[in-house]
Design a protein around this nucleic acid. Structure first.
Length: 484
RNA sequence: GGGGCGGUAGCUCAGCCGGUUAGAGCAGGGGACUCAUAAUCCCUGGGUCGCGGGUUCGAGUCCCGCCCGCCCUACCA
């Protein structure tokens, strides 16, 4: 048994949650449930990045107070847990949690010897909070660039270059998939420059956490947001040891767009503060919707809660886990979601459970026989290991595929042994066949638990033990599409 | 401009250190069965493995160049 700390990134809350973030939440939830079921000590944390300037801009655009917009949207993210059947242990809001602010301040002080003030000058686009080179124009905003000249705090990232490289190259900090690790190594090898970790209070619009001892500066939002991994654990009070340094695995899930912050800046900050670095960074790619990029500020966006009410949480989770490749963006369409659900859950697993129940009722008055047939022993024994291996490799497709494989083998088995024929012949083989099928369905329910917790409960409810009475047959997964 | 990752059957994708006739699922076509949610099971896959060269006895699988998509990154006017 080991102690595992799992975390998602915290999204900024300038808009309501979209499907893309649901992917990360569900992946994290699956890993957490998987490890809990194996007896590991697990903690899964998520939250929201309230202090991003984007939130201020969104509030301006909407004509509401920042506090109001942030509170409202953050609540939407927290509420995702219900519809998506997520089970997280903690939800941190960077603007509302006292422990967060205290922790960020402490982290700042812990890194004090790597922080220094430097004068900085540049052309700044307020729209995207980014500096540009002279002569450049912001590709996204028409507004003229502002000349900014101010003194900021900088972090001495440069001195950690070799240590970071070694950490990642050696695998002590594992980055998955491997392509992402290479990307980071190439970046580090290219040389690391110190980066700015504060901005003037005015430029930050007074929103954010002030630099300790320098109230005219606000801590850079990335410093703030990354700190959440530590602050949620009680870093501000020095109570984080059990779950940070004390964990066997510190696993961050993140999207490809924020890889550098997690693979370079964050570990460097931790080294500076004298803390352990993460053990695993699991990087996912993005979702598109009907071929279009998902964006918070317009364009295609799909509401995960809406999808759940339309298709159910099992169908949505199954699609996210089953259809999204380990590498590469995946395109979401309702058609694909329905197809996966109907083919594998309704016609595959649901029908299996239902036909087995039907036969037990028809031939054995609903009482589950106690006899066994070893025919399915092979797949059944192999599936848990395959699932564990696949999840270790961050391959949700292969993991769910292993579960589905058991269903397919069981369905094939039914048509091979033809229980209806055995019944007609009054064969003694009928009992072991039916007993084994019911038992296999129960095992599938168990295998399914980390992926589709709701469905797992429903399936389990239809599988009684030997000698017990089975509920009357009824579809566990009603088809979503029309008749095939 | 540099770097990375993709480009494999209609669709979604597997193919590790190069090696027998290039695979799976879905869709499509044919058949069987009847326990079941018009479900299940069996049979059916001749695709220039993006393009062009090269290395090799032999290359989706390695090397070079190019094209397309995506990502990261860059003081080139």
């Amino acid at each position: 048994m080991s102690r595992i700390l799992l975390s998602t990134t915290i999204p900024y809350v300038n808009a309501r949650p979209h499907l893309g973030f649901a992917l990360e939440l569900v992946q994290a939830d699956v890993l957490a449930r998987h490890h809990r079921l194996r007896g590991d000590e697990v903690r899964l944390q998520t939250g929201t990045d309230d202090n991003s300037l984007k939130n201020v801009q969104a509030a301006d655009a909407a004509g509401v107070a920042v506090r109001e917009l942030v509170d409202r949207n953050a609540a939407e993210f927290a509420r995702l847990a219900g519809p998506l059947s997520l089970e997280f242990d903690d939800f941190v809001r960077t603007s509302a949690d006292l422990r967060h602010r205290a922790g960020v301040e402490r982290l700042w002080r812990a890194c004090a010897e790597d922080l220094y003030r430097k004068h900085y000058e540049g052309l700044y686009c307020v729209g995207c909070e980014h500096f540009y080179q002279p002569g450049e124009q912001c590709p996204e905003h028409d507004a003229p660039l502002q000349h900014v000249s101010e003194e900021n705090w900088f972090f001495r990232l440069s001195r950690y270059q070799d240590e970071l490289y070694e950490l990642i190259a050696s695998g002590r900090l594992r980055i998955e998939p491997a392509g992402r690790r290479n990307e980071v190594l190439a970046f580090i090898a290219g040389g690391l420059a110190d980066f700015s970790v504060s901005r003037s209070r005015t430029r930050a619009r007074g929103w954010g956490i002030p630099v300790p001892g320098d109230p005219d500066q606000v801590i850079y939002v990335w410093w703030d947001a990354l700190g959440y991994y530590l602050t949620a654990l009680g870093y501000g009070d020095g109570e984080h040891g059990r779950w940070w340094g004390g964990a066997d695995r510190r696993v961050h899930l993140l999207g490809k767009g924020v890889l550098r912050f997690h693979a370079v800046y964050w570990p460097a900050m931790l080294l500076s503060a004298g803390e352990e670095v993460p053990t695993d960074l699991l990087v996912h790619d993005y979702l598109t919707v009907e071929g279009r990029k998902i964006s918070k500020s317009g364009g295609a966006a799909v509401d995960p809660v809406g999808l759940v009410s339309a298709y159910g949480v099992d169908a949505l989770r199954w699609w996210l886990l089953r259809d999204v490749p380990r590498v590469g963006d995946a395109d979401f369409t309702a058609e694909r979601l329905v197809a996966r659900h109907d083919d594998e859950l309704a016609n595959g697993l649901g029908n299996l459970v239902n036909r087995v129940a039907g036969m037990v009722h028809r031939y054995r008055d609903g009482i589950v026989p106690a006899d066994r047939d070893p025919a399915l022993d092979g797949v059944r024994a192999g599936a848990p290991d395959t699932v564990a291996e696949a999840l270790e490799a961050f391959d949700f497709r292969r993991a769910t595929g292993a579960v589905h494989e058991v269903v397919e083998v069981a369905n094939r088995y039914v048509s091979q042994v033809k229980p209806w024929q055995l019944a007609r012949e009054g064969s003694a083989r009928l009992d072991p066949v039916l007993g084994t099928l019911v038992e296999t369905c129960r095992e599938v329910a168990g295998l399914l638990a980390p992926f589709l917790p709701d469905a797992a409960v429903r399936v389990a409810a239809r599988c009684a033990g030997p000698g017990e009475r089975l509920p009357a047959p009824a579809p566990v997964f009603p088809r979503l599409g029309g008749t095939a």
